[in-house]
Each structure stands twice: as structure tokens, then as C-alpha cells.
Design a protein around this nucleic acid. Structure first.
Lengths: 210, 210
DNA sequence: AATGCAATATACCCGATAGTAGATTTTTTG
DNA sequence: CAAAAAATCTACTATCGGGTATATTGCATT
């Protein structure tokens, strides 16, 4: 048996698929490093030099994987928004009354907003992006809003959700559950799941005694 | 009667007090122009040249009234925060059950967040300010948070507010009522007062049917 | 072995803008 | 009216950071 090499996948020689995968992994590492710095120090206070240095590479390497700073930010918020979109679809696919599906969505929504990419969605003002990127950003946020509105309407239709003004209810719920992007501290007393659950409870029953 | 002039206060000659007042008025005009541009285009996307031009003056004029850009922003958020502080004190001074005082505060709080300086408070990340200014900013925000918490606790004490977790209730309410800083449009269908009232209603009773 | 592409680096350019120096005009006051 | 003070301007400096031109290294495919 002459040919078969002893090394299975620690060979330094990669297949085309492996190369593509490591490239993708590097791209994602750039985005993760970037989003963390954006969240911590702010977009403008984070130079791509900073991001590069934090990864032990130089700035042109980032440009090798992503076109420019605007694209880096757009990618980051797009990841966060697709997580929210996934949550919406999962809620949509659930059985149960409208209120249950709504609560399911709201919990996930809150949880995403406590994670790196979700936080970035909330903290990123449209002004930070180029006009074209901002348009795509708005579009995707709009889809999330619509999904939330639809869940509310379904709840109203089956009598499990009570409100005078679905639009305003949507804004109110979203606002309450966006805010953890600013205050939640994962090293604090609550887990993401627990914090999300309790917030949704509060929103569901209100603060007046029943 | 030789002396008494016919012009009462349209004389171009001002008293010391009047001069001080016009100076203050100019300072405030700068802050108002600045905060509007900050809210619209973002802090970093607004140069002091832009602000100056919008007032028909040149940049050094701004420096004549305010020390530097950091101070301009700090002044803006300080105005917003003092409006919130006023709301807290007014609520504190009210008669009635805890829940009524809390609702009073929350409505004002929401209204402030739909106005120029309040919006700026919400939209300003601490990273935009110098470390020293950021510390003062945090301090003042902290005071508002504490006031909200205190009102909640009073409601709990007299049985008019129901919650398992006052801290989280505070965050949830604040988040919901901060969010209008991002979405509220004064040219839209609702007045500030009406929007605030409805949001507080939603938060008070929740979205589950009673 | 030779050619080519992917990955990465160094060193640079350039535009924007915060902040300043110094002159100038206007107003107040002695 | 003269001198001082306040208000404002023009023109400049300095810095930062996004983005690029170009060189280098090394694996990969034929």
C-alpha cells in the first residue's frame, strides 16, 4: 500500500472545498472582530486598522475579504437581521394561538438583540451607511417589522391579543426588546433566555395588577 | 421730561442684562441647530462648519459660544436630561397612587424623547463623548433611571404596581418609551401626547386580553 | 519546473474636519 | 472721542483614517 497517506485532514494541502471554507471562516472572523469593536467603541471610533490589528493582520487583508468599511457594516447588520428573520419564520411555522406564536417570536427577538450582530442592528443608525446600503438596511428592517405586525394581527384575529392600535403595539414591543442591545450584560445576573422571558412576560401582562 | 426715550426695548443699545440674554439666546440657537443636525445626520456626519453655515455664521463663532464639539454635544444631551429630570420631579410631587405618578412620569418621559433634545439623549452613544463628558452623561442618565425605579418601588409598596422584578420592569418601560426617538414622526397621524398616552396604556395593561 | 492565483504586507495618497491664529468690525464705556 | 471689550471673519494647520498601488511569498495545477 504505497499511496494512502497517514494524515487524514491535518495535511497542509487543502482541497478546493477546504480552501473555500477557510476563506469563508476568515471572512467571518473579520466580521466578528469588527462587530464587536463597533458595538464597544462605536463605528466611527473603530478604524479598519484597529480591526486588522486585533486579528494580527494588516488593513489590506480586510479589503481582500470585504470591499470597504461600508460593506463590513452592512454585512454585520445583515447577519443580525437574518437572525431576526429566522426567528420570524420559526414563529410563523409554529402551531398554537396567535399570542403564543407572538411570544415565541418576541423572546427570540430579544435574545438576538443581546448578541453581537443583533446589537449592531440596533445600534447602527442609517446615517452610518452609504445611501445604497442604508436602503437595503431599511428594507430588511421593514420586513421584520411587517412580520411582527402580521403576528399581532393574527393574534387579534383569533382573539388572543388585545390592542387598539396594532402599529403602536408593534413599536412599543420592538422598542422594549431592542433596548437590551444597550444595557444587557451577559456577565450579569440573568441569562439572555431568562431576561428575554421576563421582559416578554412584563409586556404581555402589563404592570397594573390584574 | 427730557430724558425718557420713546423706544421701549427696540433700542439698539442694550442693558447689561439684555446683552447677557442675547448672548444666551445665540448660544441656544447654536445648540438647537446642532441638535437637529445631529439627530438627522448623525454626530460624526455633522461638522461644526455645517452647523455654522446653517445659522449663517462661520465656525469660529461657534467656538466663541461653546468650547468644542464635545461640549456642544454634552450641552445638548444635558438639556434633554434636565427635561427628563423635571418630569421626574413633577411626578414625584404629585398626589395619588404610585401607578398614577408612574404613568404621569412615563408619559412625559416619552414626550421628551420625541423632541429635539430628548431624541439626542437616546441617540447619543457614550462613545461619542470624551471620557470626562461621557462620565457626566452616564451620571445624569443614572439619576433618571433611579427616579424611575423609585416610582416603581412606590407603586409596589402601595399595591398599585405589580411586578416580579422592578429593575427589569424599569428597563422594559424605558426601552419602549425611548424608541420613539427613532421612529416618531411629528407630521404623522398622532400627536406626541396621544402617542405617549397610548404607549403607556399598552405598557400598563399588556397585550394579553384581561 | 513553470506559470498563475490567493494571501498578505509596506508604504503611500488624499480628503475631511476639528481646532486655532490673527485680523477686523462693532459695541460699550470712561 | 478714545480705549477696551465683544463678536465675528478669513485663512491656516494638523491629524486621522479610508482607501490604493505595488511588492512579496508560497501553494497549486499542469
Amino acid at each position: 500500500m504505497t499511496g494512502t497517506p497517514a494524515q487524514k485532514d491535518k495535511s497542509p494541502f487543502q482541497t478546493a472545498a477546504q480552501r473555500k471554507a477557510t476563506r469563508e471562516a476568515k471572512r467571518e472572523a473579520v466580521l466578528l472582530a469588527a462587530v464587536r469593536m463597533f458595538n464597544e467603541r462605536g463605528f466611527h471610533a473603530t478604524s479598519l486598522d484597529d480591526v486588522a490589528t486585533s486579528l494580527g493582520v494588516s488593513k489590506p487583508t480586510i479589503y481582500h475579504y470585504l470591499g470597504n468599511k461600508d460593506q463590513v457594516l452592512l454585512e454585520c447588520v445583515s447577519i443580525g437581521l437574518s437572525q431576526l428573520q429566522d426567528a420570524a419564520e420559526a414563529a410563523r411555522a409554529r402551531p398554537g394561538k396567535g399570542i403564543d406564536r407572538l411570544r415565541f417570536f418576541l423572546e427570540r427577538y430579544a435574545q438576538v438583540n443581546m448578541e453581537d450582530f443583533g446589537r449592531c442592528v440596533i445600534r447602527t443608525g442609517e446615517q452610518l451607511l452609504s445611501p445604497e446600503s442604508a436602503a437595503r438596511f431599511r428594507e430588511k428592517k421593514r420586513a421584520i417589522d411587517d412580520a411582527l405586525r402580521a403576528l399581532i394581527e393574527e393574534g387579534i384575529a383569533d382573539g388572543s391579543v388585545a390592542t387598539q392600535d396594532p402599529r403602536l403595539l408593534g413599536f412599543t414591543l420592538a422598542g422594549a426588546l431592542n433596548w437590551p442591545a444597550r444595557w444587557f450584560d451577559p456577565t450579569g445576573p440573568l441569562t439572555r433566555e431568562e431576561a428575554a422571558r421576563r421582559m416578554v412576560d412584563i409586556l404581555c401582562t402589563g404592570f397594573a395588577p390584574r
